[in-house]
Amino acid sequence: MPLPYKINLIDHDRWLSSGYKRTFSWGLVLNEAGKELGFWRVARYNPNLDTEGGCYEFSLEKTGPAIVSEEFALLESRISRGVALSDFVAKIADWLRDQ
């Protein structure tokens, strides 16, 4: 079954609906065919302080070094987080194209 996007962040919605709990701040990255590309995670954020930002990171291993990253300014701002998420996914697509 094809996935809806060229780059899919599995369980990203779970992280949002959890209230940004660190336990849920990661997941798989799959392409539209369901092939595993690596892992996404959110780093450098405080789930109890929504006036600070954080950073989306993509790595080949769950705890591996980030290959792609994109910072966002405010955790609770859909605009800040949404723009960063869009740029983050585009960077993963660019990285994949260059492989």
Rank of each mutant, 00 (worst) to 15 (best):
K91G: 01
R81P: 03
D94A: 15
D13N: 12
F39Y: 02
D87W: 08
F58P: 05
R97A: 14
P47S: 01
T51M: 05
S69M: 10
W95G: 07
P65W: 12
R81W: 00
S86M: 10
R41K: 03
S77R: 07
H12D: 06
W26H: 09
Q99A: 13
E32D: 10
S17N: 11
E71T: 15
R78L: 14
N48S: 14
L85W: 00
S59R: 08
A84R: 05
R22C: 09
M1D: 12
R78K: 14
S80P: 03
F88R: 03
Y45D: 02
W26D: 06
V83Y: 07
E70L: 05
E36A: 09
L3A: 11
I79V: 12
L28H: 10
F58K: 07
N8H: 06
G53S: 08
R44C: 10
G27F: 01
W15G: 04
Y20N: 05
F24K: 04
L85Q: 09
M1T: 13
V83T: 04
S77M: 06
P47E: 01
G53N: 02
P47W: 04
D87I: 11
A90R: 13
D98Q: 15
S59W: 07
A93K: 04
R78N: 15
Y5E: 15
L16K: 07
L74Q: 14
M1P: 10
D94F: 12
S86R: 11
S80K: 08
D94I: 12
Q99P: 06
P4H: 08
L37A: 01
I10S: 07
G38I: 03
S69N: 13
G34F: 02
G34R: 05
F72D: 09
L96S: 12
P4F: 08
F88D: 02
I92P: 00
K21Q: 15
W40T: 02
Y5L: 15
E70K: 07
F39C: 01
V68Y: 09
S59F: 08
F24G: 00
L16A: 08
E52I: 12
F58N: 07
K21L: 15
Y45S: 00
C55D: 10
G38K: 05
P47N: 03
F58I: 09
Y56T: 09
D87M: 11
G53V: 04
G27N: 00
S18T: 06
A43T: 09
L9F: 06
L96A: 14
E71C: 10
V29H: 01
D87H: 11
D94P: 01
R41M: 06
V68E: 08
A90Q: 14
G34S: 01
S77P: 01
W95T: 06
D11A: 07
E52D: 08
V68I: 14
R14W: 11
P4A: 10
F88T: 02
E70C: 13
Q99R: 14
